Computed example of a mutant assay.
Amino acid sequence: MKSLIKTLGLSGCLAFTAGCASSQPNTFTFTADLPPDFVYQAIAKYVPAEGETCSVPGGRNTAVVYNVKWRGIYQPNAEIALRRTVSGCPLVISRIELDIYATYGKARGDYGVDTASVFIRNEVEEQYKSVFNEMGESTFYGECQQLFRTSGKPRILRKLLNCKTIDAQGERGTSQPFAAFTPDQLPGKTVKMHIKLADEERPAIGDTWVKVPNGWKRCMGDNYEDQYAFCFGNYKDFSGFQMPDGRQCTIYPGCTE
């Protein structure tokens, strides 16, 4: 799987075949089905079409960003061009980089983020090639898990996001969510990213929290200035922590025991 991601991630190595039918639409729709408080930002990246010797000065304007202001203006559907011309150079789409954001508080930094990808290449191994249904829609799946930790002397709770592929049985894989297509599959079609939230959260760093019957308790470590505060076998001395909304708590997620 890692070799596939590495191969597909090589920009400019493959692109559209020459002679695309002009009657085909030049766009496809990307959309996402996400858990509450999740959004995505997409960056569509383009490279010179196959056989072209031109280049774009400084590589400027060879990417298009969707949901750039995701905090305030979020649209789940994005109409993405397959071909563009920039500075007189014909370009074709090669991949879409996807940032998945999950907010957990009201402060500007109260979010976790992880990534997913859509690759568009002339050749994709059949075992990895995404397919479309009779409605012209192709869906790829992933599961995101919230990972909690504490930060700073007040031990403020922060959350990271970890997203992986899942199979038809719901088993998590080892790679980030992705889909792969050949360019002739995409005109007029819809690509959907479906992300589910894992049933349970877990600590971001091992041996820092202790599982108790009604949640997790934070190991004290040496003192509150001990940023790592590993348990090191001490499962009796715990510290309080501060939730993102300012509450002082002794257990996560219920706050009070």
Score class of each variant (00 low, 15 high):
residue 115 T to L: 12
residue 117 S to F: 01
residue 137 E to H: 14
residue 138 S to F: 12
residue 158 R to C: 00
residue 150 T to M: 10
residue 141 Y to P: 10
residue 151 S to F: 14
residue 135 M to N: 10
residue 126 E to L: 10
residue 128 Y to G: 06
residue 149 R to E: 02
residue 144 C to W: 07
residue 159 K to E: 01
residue 153 K to V: 14
residue 150 T to Q: 12
residue 137 E to W: 13
residue 134 E to P: 03
residue 107 A to L: 09
residue 103 T to V: 08
residue 139 T to F: 15
residue 120 I to L: 05
residue 125 E to I: 06
residue 114 D to G: 09
residue 117 S to R: 00
residue 104 Y to R: 00
residue 141 Y to I: 13
residue 109 G to W: 11
residue 151 S to I: 12
residue 141 Y to F: 15
residue 144 C to R: 07
residue 137 E to G: 12
residue 120 I to K: 03
residue 139 T to G: 13
residue 138 S to G: 14
residue 150 T to G: 07
residue 107 A to V: 04
residue 118 V to R: 08
residue 105 G to E: 04
residue 157 L to E: 06
residue 133 N to H: 11
residue 134 E to K: 13
residue 109 G to V: 08
residue 147 L to D: 07
residue 133 N to S: 12
residue 140 F to L: 09
residue 110 D to M: 10
residue 155 R to G: 09
residue 124 V to G: 01
residue 119 F to A: 06
residue 158 R to F: 02
residue 156 I to Y: 05
residue 108 R to S: 10
residue 131 V to C: 00
residue 154 P to T: 15
residue 136 G to M: 15
residue 135 M to Q: 11
residue 136 G to Q: 14
residue 130 S to A: 09
residue 133 N to I: 13
residue 117 S to D: 01
residue 120 I to F: 05
residue 150 T to W: 03
residue 147 L to F: 09
residue 109 G to P: 06
residue 151 S to D: 14
residue 148 F to G: 01
residue 158 R to L: 05
residue 158 R to M: 06
residue 111 Y to A: 03
